[in-house]
């Protein structure tokens, strides 16, 4: 009797408030685990600072590769933090609860992806001008870089979510995740990095932004569907 009322109560929860609750829950958990929050940013910082050590400290050489370096590092940082997306929820069983909830899974997955982006993508975007400065990115390209990262990193989270959802039940998933997700992320990397490079040469970049926006729109509509389907398969 009580259970029935409970289920009735859950059905009464609107999709929007379920969306907000999922988002808030993920953000609170992330804020409580400071390490998980800091790791992607530190990783981003370390990877970017490896490039001058590996290539050359020469400003001319560094500024010519700076756009690509920042973008590739952002991609890798997003990859690294993906594992947090469903892993803990899978292990403590709350992912199953999420799948059982009467609200459309699409929106719950979307909420989790947005939370992931706020935790791991946004700090990278905010930190990127500092790193761009260290790599001698020409000043006229700063805004383009920040904007492309702002549009591009959500796509990385959304695509990455599909890969994590497919591999969440597996024991050794680190490398498989990279092999699945990285090829899917290439269009964003190509367009984002090229926009920054083109601005450095004084070329117009509005078409780059249009393409990135189109990819983001496609990812927002399609990727959570694929993630939801993948989660249902993985959790069973």
């Amino acid at each position: 009797m009580n259970d029935a009322r409970e289920i009735q109560g859950l059905k009464g929860v609107s999709t929007w408030s379920a969306f907000c609750a999922t988002l808030r829950r993920d953000l609170i958990i992330a804020l409580k685990r400071r390490n998980d929050l800091l790791n992607p940013i530190m990783f981003f910082l370390i990877v970017v600072s490896l490039f001058p050590l590996g290539i050359s400290p020469d400003p001319v050489e560094l500024s010519s590769v700076s756009a690509g370096v920042v973008w590739v590092s952002a991609l890798l940082a997003s990859m690294l933090s993906l594992d947090n997306l469903y892993r803990a929820d899978y292990e403590d069983g709350s992912l199953e609860q999420l799948l059982l909830s009467p609200q459309p899974l699409y929106f719950l997955v979307l909420a989790k992806n947005i939370a992931h982006w706020l935790i791991s993508g946004l700090p990278v975007v905010i930190l990127s001008p500092l790193l761009a400065y260290m790599l001698y990115l020409p000043s006229e390209a700063y805004w383009t870089m920040v904007l492309t990262l702002l549009i591009g990193t959500p796509v990385l989270s959304l695509f990455g979510s599909i890969g994590v959802a497919l591999t969440v039940g597996l024991g050794s998933r680190g490398l498989i995740l990279a092999v699945i997700v990285l090829p899917l992320s290439t269009p964003v990397l190509i367009i984002g990095a090229k926009a920054v490079t083109d601005v450095m040469f004084g070329l117009p970049v509005s078409s780059h932004f249009a393409l990135l926006g189109a990819i983001l729109a496609l990812a927002l509509t399609m990727a959570p569907l694929a993630s939801a389907a993948a989660l249902r398969i993985s959790v069973n």
Binding site: I162, L166, G169, I180, P183, L184, T186, P187, I190, I191, K194, L211, I215, L218, M222, A226, A229, A230, I233, S234, N236
Partner: peptide, 28 residues
């Protein structure tokens, strides 16, 4: 059974992505 479905999802996602990759690489 899970492998079949998971690979099916990945194949569909990949097939949607292949033209995007092809187009962006050509454009690049």
């Amino acid at each position: 059974d899970a492998a079949a479905k998971a690979c099916a999802v990945l194949a569909i996602v990949g097939a949607i992505n292949v033209p995007i990759i092809k187009y962006s690489v050509e454009w690049w």
